[in-house]
Structures are given as structure tokens and as C-alpha cells.
Amino acid sequence: MYQLDPKKLSCLGIQEVPTTLMNIEVERLHPGVWQKRKSFNEESLDDLADSMKTTGTNVVPLIVSLRPDGDFSIIAGERRWRSGKRLGFATLKCEVGAYSYEQAAYISAIENLQRTDLNPIEEATSYHDLCTDLNLSHGDLAIQVGKSRSHISNYVRLLDLDIRVRDSLISSRLSYGHARPLCSLKNKADQRNIAEKAVRFEWNVQKIQQAVNALTQRKPSPVKLSDTDPDLKRLERDISEVTGLDCVVKRTPSGSWQLGFLAPESESFTGLLDRLGVRFDSDLEN
């Protein structure tokens, strides 16, 4: 779970915003425009309501800002507000601050990322919106939320998937691991077809990857041999016969030589290195 670290918010000046703790009438609280979450788990809201009923109030205050009409917009704590309404609470504890749009967007997104029931599309949307609203790169955001840059980038790629695939992620019929291979498919119909089969036949990640590979793997383009010098052509054929790999031999205008090989898979590549007496780091295969 993510933890909101005030030290990481200094660039936005969030900790510098003065706040006031108030008890505010429930009917004067409204969901904020920063809330990207569209669905709320009913069972989770019931559990939260039971907890609030035991304490008689919300122990953790909502974070809100004043609206022009005198009411308040919820920046963080909409689940507590919804549970409070279920219980018929007249007021809720709130921390009121004059936050800027960027500050409120950051606080709201970070609160969403702290949830344990966050689905992959909600997580991806939070990352995307933070980068857009705050003009952050994936690397910058990764530092802020304590994740790797690749983690951010891989999740944001989910937003380009076919809408039905995204719906399957939201409804938990597909996991992030199931959907990630589909991101390599440009055709959304292909994405949708594989996703539907994965759900229907309960495919594992490996099966989905195999289906994706069947669509994306093509025969490699043949290596273009030298087409000007017959001596070079013959040399290329001789080298290919010895190494078992297609090769290209070039001579530059300066008189230097270039030799290139095409190894279609790791086994061919390691075989060539063995014949050359080169020690191979197996980590390169991953």
C-alpha cells in the first residue's frame, strides 16, 4: 500500500497550506471534481460504515475545500462520506484547506492509490491524470509514489486497450498480468478476441502470451546480402556455412570492414559466441 509522505509533497507546497478541523453537515459535502473513481464496492462501504458506527464518527477526517456557494468539495474521503450518509450522521469531521487544483488532484489521486481494492484501470487512470495535471514524466511520478518508472508506464498502457478489455479489468474478470501481453497488439479487435477467450476458457497468463505471440510473430525478413561485389557474396556464403547464421559483410569507403550476423533466437546466438570463445552472460537471455 502507498503511504502519503509529506516530505514528497514539498514541491507542491501542500504542507504549507493552513487547515482547520471542523464538523461539517453531511448535506454540505459534495464529491470533488478530482475524484476519478467511478465505482464503490458496496461490501467495502458496509464494512467502513460498521467501523464508523462503532466509533460514532469518522476517526480520519475528510480533506475538503470551500466552494463558491459556501458548501465544501471532498478532496479525500468520499468513502467515509458515503458511509456516513448510510448511517444517517448529521456531521463529519473535516480538515478544510484552500488547496489549489494541482494540490487537490495530487491528494485525491494518492488517496485512491492507497486503497487495497484498486482495480488496474483505476490505478492506471490515477497515474495518467497525475502526469497530465501536474506535468510530470513517468519517471518523476515514480519517485513521488515509490514505484519504478516501468511500473507506471506499463499501467498507463492499459488505458489504450479496447474498452471491453478495460471493462474486464474493472470487473476483475481479467488481472493486470492477463492484460499486459495484450498491450503489444495494435489491433483492438485482436485484443478483444483474445481477452474474451481468456475469460471464457479461464486462460492463464502463459496461454494469453502464446495467443499474442501467434499474432505478432512473423518470419524475419531475409538478410539482404551484398549485391555489388561477387567476392563479398561468396565470402558471406562461406561464413554462413561455417557459423550456421546469415551474415552481411561490408567494406566502408575508408577501407574498414564490418561483419554482422542474424541470430533468430538465443540458442543460435550463444552457439556463435561459443565458437568465437566469448563468455556469455546468461542474464542477457531474460
Rank of each mutant, 00 (worst) to 15 (best):
M1T: 09
Q3F: 08
L4M: 10
L4S: 06
K8Q: 10
S10E: 08
L12A: 03
I14F: 00
T20F: 02
T20S: 10
M22P: 00
N23Y: 11
E27Y: 09
E27W: 10
E27V: 12
L29T: 05
V33C: 05
W34G: 00
K38I: 14
S39R: 14
L45A: 02
D46C: 04
D47W: 11
A49E: 01
K53N: 14
T55K: 11
I63C: 00
D69G: 05
F72W: 05
G77Q: 03
R80V: 03
W81D: 02
R82H: 06
S83E: 01
G84Y: 04
K85H: 03
F89D: 04
T91M: 04
L92Y: 00
L92C: 01
E95H: 07
S100F: 02
A105Q: 09
I107E: 00
I107K: 00
N112I: 09
L113Q: 04
D117L: 12
D117W: 11
E122A: 06
E123W: 02
E123C: 09
C131Q: 12
C131T: 13
H138C: 06
D140N: 09
A142N: 02
I143M: 09
K147T: 06
S148V: 03
R149T: 15
I152M: 04
I152F: 03
S153H: 13
N154S: 13
D160S: 13
R164V: 11
R164Q: 13
S172K: 15
R173L: 13
R173C: 10
R180L: 10
L185F: 05
K186V: 08
K188S: 10
A189I: 11
E196L: 11
F201V: 11
K207V: 09
A211E: 12
N213Q: 14
A214F: 06
T216I: 14
R218E: 15
P220N: 10
S221K: 15
S221I: 13
L225G: 13
D229R: 15
L235E: 04
L235G: 01
R237F: 04
R237L: 07
I239C: 00
S240H: 06
T243W: 00
V248Q: 13
R251L: 08
P253A: 15
W257I: 06
W257P: 01
Q258A: 07
L259K: 05
L259C: 04
S268R: 15
D274P: 05
G277A: 04
D281Q: 07
D283A: 12
L284N: 07
E285I: 11
